[in-house]
Structures are given as structure tokens and as C-alpha cells.
Design a protein around this nucleic acid. Structure first.
Lengths: 177, 177
DNA sequence: AGCGGAAGTGAGAGACCTCTTACATCGACA
DNA sequence: TGTCGATGTAAGAGGTCTCTCACTTCCGCT
């Protein structure tokens, strides 16, 4: 690991998650990500034309991973799929800092990035399947999961473990049905 | 309205709401508020020692107004209080941009501001009364209301009116009971 | 009328950010 | 082995932000 990093592109995406988890979208900066990786602040621009394209790649990765986490949760709880997925959402967002506010961030709408479009579309499709194509149920579930995740990130539950809160999100989702 | 503004302090708070409604916490800046009011960027510092104290005053105002909006909604729907309050939350946040992410923003914890403390405490107390001191129900309701409000602010519901979405938040809250 | 203080202003220091440019390094392949 | 392209760096232009400082304006009070 000398002058050349090896796989800076992937490292930038992973480290972006860390920066997002710590300071949220508002404190995210390309410079902070570079600093944390120990590379110059110009280095990221060899891999992404601008800040929004980096965020777009993060969004794509988050959409893919979130979908995987939800599918895994559903597989573990076959007859409680949607509620389990809501719990998985809470856990994923608390761990990575990247939820729908990142995945569907408004500032990314203008970024041309087919990979992101593909992954966000797949995520939406999967969630729709979980609700039997009930859009209202989908939005209610998302609201609950995102709401709980936001409350955690706001330190609303001072000492409760993430798993406990995720279970409560799961229960609240179940109450919708 | 010449050299002296009249009531710049109050105007700063009101305009801060506008800036928050348009760009969220991440795009909020004292300079932007001053610019929008047509005063110099030093003027706000005659009334607030720093940015966080301005945000704290906004938080206090939001907590007071939100509590009033909730109480009014409850008064209109005596036998559906909590659910009506959730709808009021959604409407208030979409209109003003200041929800719990502003009212309970982490960066304000260190700001000594008794007025804010008082208003946020009153808001919490009122919400607790609405849930019959059921903390779990309170957090679930907040998660739903905040979640729906976030989804709206993210342009998730392209053409649905705010009132329609607020009604769905109300219905989802009712499902908890 | 005149004076003192509250509330403005303009200028700017210092921090940080995005993104560019010219140059350095190094791995891969002819 | 030599060279070329990909990927790094240092430096910096240009922007925005927070907050300070010296100075000005004007309201209220005697």
C-alpha cells in the first residue's frame, strides 16, 4: 500500500458510509472521506467526477445492501416477512447511516448513474413484493422503519439497544396488518 | 423600516423556518437567513451569540407551535386524539420544515437555553398525556408521524396532497391501538 | 437639544469545501 | 527494459460559512 492505494474507489464508498453514520448527510464531504483514508483531497476526483457521483455510488451500494438485508430477514421469518424487513431496515440504517434519505436523496435525482437507478428500482420492487403491491402499506412500513431509525440516530432511546428498538419497529409494522 | 429593522430577532426566527423548510438542516446557515432578510450577515449576531443559539430559539418556537397544533387537532377530534395529533405533526413539519430533527437536534443539547428546555418539556408532556403515559406508544406514534413527514419532504409522494398523506399517517397511528 | 446605548453596517480573518491543474509515481505490457 | 496510462500528490482558485471588530445610525430619555 504505497503511492497507489489498490482499490481507492471501493474504499471511498465504504468510508463514505462511515462518515455518513457519524455526521449524517449534512456533515458529509469529499474532503472528510479523503482525510479519513489518508489520501489527498484531490484523489477522489480520479474516481468520481464530483461529490454527487460519489454519493450516488453510495446510494447504489446502500440500496443493494439494504435489499439483501431485507431479503435475508424475510428468509429467516417466512410468515412475518414485511415486519421482519422493517426491523432489518432499522438495523441497517443505524449501522451504516444510509437510509432512504441517502438512497433517495433529492440532490441525486439529476445524477446520471444507471447502476444506482437499477439498484434503487430493485429495492422498490422487492419492497412492493413484500406488501403484495399494496403501495399504501409500503409507505406506511417505510414511514415506521425510517421513523424509528431517525429516532435512534437522534439519541431518542438513550440506553435501549438497537435490536430492542428494531423489534419495536417490527411490532409496530405488524400492527398495520 | 430603515436602518433599524424593528424586530429583527423575531424576523430571524421566522425566516429560519423558511430556510429550513426549503433546504433542511443541512442547508441552514445564519448567512442565508440574513441574506433573505436583506440585512448584513453580522446583524444576526446582535441577537444571538452564535448559530446554535438561533437554532435553539427556532427549536423553542417549533416546540411551542407544534404543541399548540397538536392540542388544536385533539380538541377537534376528542375521541381520536393521538391519531389526530399525528396528522397535525405531519402537517406542521411539512409546512415549516421543523420537526423533531430540529426540535431535538443533537447539536442543541449543549446550548444553555431555558426557554427551549421549557417548551420541549411541555411538548413531551403533552404527547405523553395523549398516550396515557405509554412511552412505547408515544415513540411508535412519533416514528410514524416523523416517517411520513420525512417521506413527503423527500418527494416520495409526487402528487398526493399533504392533507391526504397526513390522513394516512393518522390512519396508521390508529392501527397501533 | 443632546447624549448614551441598542442595533445596524462593511470589511475581513480564519476555516472548510469543491474542484482544477501541473506534476510525480508506478504497474502492466510491448 | 522502456514507456505509457492510470492513479496518486501539492498547490491553489474561488466559494461559502461563522464570527469579530471598528464604526455608524437612530431611538428614547433627561
Amino acid at each position: 500500500m504505497g503511492y497507489h492505494h489498490g482499490d481507492l474507489r471501493a474504499a471511498l464508498i465504504r468510508t463514505s458510509f462511515d462518515v455518513l453514520a457519524e455526521g449524517g448527510l449534512s456533515r458529509f464531504s469529499v474532503a472528510a472521506v479523503a482525510r479519513r483514508l489518508g489520501v489527498s483531497s484531490a484523489a477522489p476526483y480520479r474516481h468520481f467526477p464530483d461529490r454527487d457521483h460519489l454519493l450516488s455510488a453510495v446510494s447504489a451500494a446502500a440500496a443493494r445492501e439494504l435489499r439483501e438485508a431485507m431479503l435475508a430477514a424475510v428468509a429467516r421469518n417466512p410468515d412475518d416477512g414485511l415486519a421482519a424487513a422493517a426491523g432489518a431496515y432499522v438495523r441497517y440504517v443505524v449501522r451504516t447511516g444510509a437510509g432512504i434519505h441517502v438512497i433517495f436523496a433529492k440532490e441525486l435525482y439529476a445524477v446520471p448513474d444507471d447502476e444506482r437507478r437499477e439498484h434503487t428500482r430493485a429495492l422498490m420492487t422487492t419492497m412492493l413484493e413484500l406488501t403484495g403491491s399494496d403501495v399504501r402499506l409500503l409507505e406506511a412500513t417505510l414511514a415506521i422503519a425510517h421513523g424509528y431509525a431517525s429516532l435512534i440516530r437522534q439519541d431518542f432511546f438513550s440506553k435501549d439497544s438497537v435490536d430492542d428498538v428494531a423489534d419495536r419497529a417490527t411490532a409496530a409494522t405488524r400492527a398495520l396488518l
